[in-house]
């Protein structure tokens, strides 16, 4: 799942080397925390959060076969 997030995000930013994902497991959900280079924040959020929404849609869809709920936190 971590790999999916980096695969999606890296081609969208100017500093792919600064894309990092950390995982935090909680009782009912898994929280993925995505951080990017400060200059790239706008590129992963998009106008009105459209890009962020698309990223979440794809990630949540890929995570349907995992037992826990997935939550993607950006920045």
């Amino acid at each position: 799942m971590k790999a999916l997030i980096t695969t999606i995000v890296q081609p969208l930013v100017d500093h792919p080397e600064d894309v990092a994902v950390t995982v935090k497991e909680e009782t009912n959900k898994v929280v993925y925390h995505l951080t990017v280079h400060p200059e790239d924040v706008g590129k992963v959020i998009g106008k009105n959060g459209r890009i962020a929404k698309s990223i979440r849609t794809v990630v949540y869809a890929a995570g349907t076969d995992t037992k826990k709920r997935i939550y993607l936190d950006i920045m």
Binding site: S54, T57, V58
Partner: peptide
């Protein structure tokens, strides 16, 4: 919706 999100990305 997933296809549309993918298309957008």
């Amino acid at each position: 919706q997933t296809l549309n999100a993918l298309q957008h990305l």
